[in-house]
Design a protein around this nucleic acid. Structure first.
Lengths: 168, 168
DNA sequence: CCGTTGACTTGCTTTTTGCAAGTTAAATCT
DNA sequence: AGATTTAACTTGCAAAAAGCAAGTCAACGG
């Protein structure tokens, strides 16, 4: 069994961007194939979180260095970007780019799969029924909100969480 | 910034199945949030690979122990299962369960996202056009093939790769 | 019977993760 | 205005996971 060599990204100084293969699946996994990256996408997409501190408090307990690393990776991957709301502000708002917004179908399928196969997880009923009855419409809704954020990413107005996923 | 604790799976003796949170996204990532797991799903789903050696030779270069670990994890997660084609045969055929087959929409969205945003990757034209023109039909086609395998997983007949992804 | 193949396991090294503590400049309070 | 707090990170170190090479062990093929 002869096997090819694997070359992969390095965490530290400047992460390489070499990809393992030309497979689209492998290439996507090179960018977000880990336990944290898609959670920040989720936070941006469904929970209206957009700041470092908000991601940290999201509940799953990312380490601060890992979060910083994943934000950087997503940024270099073109999935997110960031602005300061005002000049010289220390605050920083992250937001999904068009490429990031385009992950919505993937995220929705992931949630639906989990909902179906681990029914004890709390997924909002109306999310499921809307996904069932008219998925394209649901996706248009999600996308439209995110495009609103993208159009004015530095707005200091809070971003409303996607209705189906408001937290208690 | 107060942050909650993270508890996670362990590789060695008996992997725990504790989940980090009730979020469906986080829960899914607990199962397949890494660089290799979904590649074996891809192999089973699109390339007609179903044996250990075939996964190894897939081109991305998984280490043998990692592959064994991921197969075990997917098995425990109910995504795949395996049979021996004949009694006392050492050969072992892996196959997607219904839960695994249900990952098809996720996988397809992932491929389409990669194809869109990294256009230099070689994705078969007809896959893209079919996905564009009638995605449900494409998914039914993929699913039907996999259900064929599931109905007779020990068959020693080769599984044809999904037409769109045949290799050179 | 004997070397080969297939499906792993084991042991060790390197890389990545996790965690706690530290840094720095803006924002807020007194 | 000066002191304190907060936000967004770094840094250093320990623990876990990934990567690599080599080994096992029972069928299989000749």
């Amino acid at each position: 069994m002869q096997v090819k060599r694997c070359y992969r990204t390095v965490v530290s100084p400047e992460e390489e961007t070499a990809r393992r293969s030309d497979c689209p699946t492998a290439s996507a996994l090179d960018l977000f194939g880990d336990r944290w990256t898609l959670l920040v996408v989720r936070d941006l997409m469904f929970f209206g979180r957009r700041r470092y501190g908000e991601f940290l408090e999201a509940g799953e307990g990312v380490a601060t260095n890992i979060l910083a690393n994943r934000l950087e990776r997503l940024g270099r991957g073109g999935v997110i970007s960031s602005t300061r709301p005002r000049e010289n502000s220390r605050a920083k708002y992250y937001y999904l780019t068009r490429k990031g917004i385009d992950l919505a179908p993937l995220m929705v399928e992931m949630i639906l799969w989990s909902a179906k196969w681990e029914p004890e997880l709390p997924v909002p009923e109306d999310f499921l029924t809307r996904a069932e009855s008219d998925r394209p419409a649901l996706l248009r809704d999600i996308t439209a909100r995110l495009e609103g954020v993208l159009a004015n990413p530095g707005s200091e107005d809070g971003v409303a969480p996607f209705f189906a996923f408001e937290e208690p």
